[in-house]
Amino acid sequence: MRRIGIIPSGLLYRMMTSPVVLEARGLRKEFGALRAVNDVTLEIRAQTFHSIIGPNGAGKTTLFNLLSGTLEPTSGQVLFNGQDITHAPVHRRAHLGLGRSYQITNIFPNLTVLENVRLAVQALGSDNFKFWSANAKFARYTERARQVLEQVGLSDRSLRLARTLPQGDQRKMELGMILAPAPEILLLDEPTSGMATEQIPELIGLIQTIQRESRKTVVLVEHNMDVVMSVSDTITVMHQGSVLAEGAPAAIAANVQVQDAYLGHSLWHDALQQAQHEQSARGS
C-alpha cells in the first residue's frame, strides 16, 4: 500500500472499511457486435465520492443504465447492499435507495418545477394509490420539495413550467429531483452537462456538501477533471467498455503521467480535450 502516504487517514479508513453499497460483477452489455460495457467489476463503498471518467463512448452511461435497471445486462450481476438486483425492476431499485439522474435532460416538461421535485418525493412515500385524497393533504411532500428547491437555488422559479427553464436551471432541478427522496446512493450522469462553465463548481460543491453532511454515496460521471480530482475519494477510468484504472485521485494522476510518458498522450487528456470541445460547441 504505497498510496497510504497521500491519502488522509479518515478517508483511508472509509475507503478500506466502509461496506460495499453497490457492486458490479463481470457486468457486460452488448449492442449487436458492440460491447458497450465489457466485464466491468466495480465496488462502490458507502459514503464515498466515486467518480467515473473516460472519453465519450467509454460506456459510462450504459453502465449507469445497467446499475439503475433501465437496461438488462447481457451477463454479469449487480448487487445492492449484498442483494442481487440484476433483474429487479427500475422502480424497485428506487425504493431500495438508488437514485439516478441523466446525462440528457429527463424531466416532466409540462409540469411545474415544484411538481417535478414533489413527484420525486412522493414516489417513495406510501400514498401513491390514495386516489381519494386531495394531494394538498400530503403537505410533507411539498415541504420537502420546497426545501430541496431552496438548496439547489430554484425557490423563486418553483411555479414555472419545467420546460421553460434555461437548461442550466433544468440541470439544477434534476439534481433536486434526485436529492429530494434522499436516496442512499446517487448515480449522477454528467449532472453539469449543458450548464454554463462558471456554474459547474457551485453545483458540484453542493453535491459534495450534501454527500458529506448526509453521509451519502455518490457516483459521478463528469468531464471536468479539476472538479473530479478535487472532490473524489476514488476514481475509475473507463475506456471502450472496460475499467482501465481505479484508485485515489493522486494515484490516477500518477497513472496518467505514466501514460503520458509512454504513449505521449493520455486518456485523461483525451477526455479533457473532448470535454472542452463539447463545451465550446455548446457555447456557440
Binding site: P89, H95, R100, I107, L119, A123, P181
Partner: peptide, 9 residues
C-alpha cells in the same frame, strides 16, 4: 421512463 426511475410502478 422518468416516472419509473423515480420509483413508480
Amino acid at each position: 421512463e422518468r416516472a419509473r426511475v423515480l420509483g413508480y410502478p
